[in-house]
Design a protein around this nucleic acid. Structure first.
Length: 250
DNA sequence: TCATTAATCGCAC
DNA sequence: GTGCGATTAATGA
C-alpha cells in the first residue's frame, strides 16, 4: 500500500530531489502550514533540495536573485559585510525559516550573505514559480506578509538595541535571542557560536564579548565551557536589560 | 599525539 | 571602548 503511493508520487509528483513537503516535520514552515491548499501543494513539488556542509556559503552578497530558500534541517547565519570587512550578523535561522526573502520581488541582487552553521539541508524554490503560487493563493501570501511584518519588527528592535543599549546589554540581548530561538539542551544553548559571531550580532568586537562573558560568568548569570554557553535563569537574566530599558522607554 | 584554530589577557591608544 | 600581539586553551586530523 505504502509502496504503491510512493511509486505514484515518484512517477510524476516527486520533487526534483529529497524530502516531500507532505512528509516534512517542520510544522512552522510556511509551506507546511499551507500544504492543504492545492496551489501550495502543487508548487511544493517543484522544489530542489540542497545540502550544505558546515561553513558553506550558499548566498553571496551581490549575487543575482533566482529564488529563495527554506531551511529543511540545520542552522544558518545571515549577514551583511560592512565597513573594512566587518560582518554584521542580521539574524540566525533554524528549521522551517526563510532565507533570501529580501531579494525577492523587485530586487535583483541579494543584499545579504548566508552561511550554514552546521550541516544543513535547504529547500530551494525558484522566484517565478513562487510568484505564481502567491498570486493564486491569498492565505499563503498573507502568511508570508505576517512573516515580513515580524521580520521588520525585529529589525527595528535591533536598531534600537544597537543605538541605545550598552555593550553589556547588547551581549545579554544577543544571548537571550539565541537561547530563545534555539533553546537550551542540558543547560547549554543548542547552538555553538564563536565569540566573534556573538560580537558580529551584538555589534561589538570579539574582545568585548570575551570580557563581558567572563564578567557574567563571575556573576553566575551564565555558565560557559568553551563554546558552550548556558543561561541557568533566563528570567533573572532578562532583568539585566529590562530594568535599564524601562528608563529608556519612559 | 601534534598542529591548527579559538579564546583570553594585557596593554597602548 | 577599541585594536593589536602574546599566551593559553580547545579542537580535530
Amino acid at each position: 500500500m505504502q509502496l504503491n503511493t510512493e511509486n505514484i508520487q515518484r512517477s510524476h509528483r516527486m520533487p526534483i530531489s529529497g524530502v516531500l513537503c507532505t512528509t516534512c516535520e517542520n510544522v512552522e514552515c510556511l509551506m507546511k502550514k499551507n500544504i492543504a491548499s492545492s496551489v501550495v501543494s502543487e508548487f511544493s513539488y517543484k522544489k530542489t533540495d540542497l545540502n550544505c556542509k558546515k561553513g558553506q556559503q550558499f548566498i553571496m552578497e551581490g549575487a543575482p536573485v533566482n529564488g529563495l530558500f527554506f531551511i529543511l534541517k540545520g542552522k544558518v547565519k545571515v549577514f551583511r559585510t560592512g565597513i573594512n570587512g566587518r560582518e554584521q550578523i542580521v539574524r540566525f535561522a533554524k528549521e522551517g525559516e526563510i532565507i533570501g526573502h529580501r531579494g525577492f520581488g523587485t530586487e535583483e541582487y541579494y543584499s545579504i550573505s548566508a552561511i550554514a552553521l552546521e550541516n544543513t539541508t535547504l529547500c530551494y524554490f525558484s522566484k517565478n514559480l513562487l510568484q505564481e503560487a502567491l498570486k493564486k493563493d491569498a492565505t499563503f501570501t498573507y502568511d508570508l506578509m505576517l512573516f515580513y511584518a515580524d521580520e521588520l519588527n525585529r529589525s527595528e528592535a535591533k536598531v534600537k538595541s544597537i543605538s541605545q543599549m550598552t555593550v553589556r546589554e547588547r551581549v545579554i540581548d544577543t544571548l537571550l535571542y539565541v537561547s530563545r530561538k534555539f533553546g537550551q539542551v542540558n543547560g547549554y544553548i543548542d547552538l555553538q557560536l564563536s565569540r566573534k559571531e556573538y560580537a558580529d550580532y551584538a555589534g561589538t568586537t570579539e574582545e568585548q564579548v570575551i570580557r563581558i562573558l567572563s564578567v557574567l560568568k563571575k556573576e553566575n548569570l551564565i555558565i560557559a565551557k568553551g563554546k558552550r554557553i548556558g543561561i541557568p535563569d533566563v528570567q533573572l537574566f532578562k532583568r539585566e536589560i529590562s530594568e535599564h530599558n524601562f528608563y529608556l522607554d519612559t
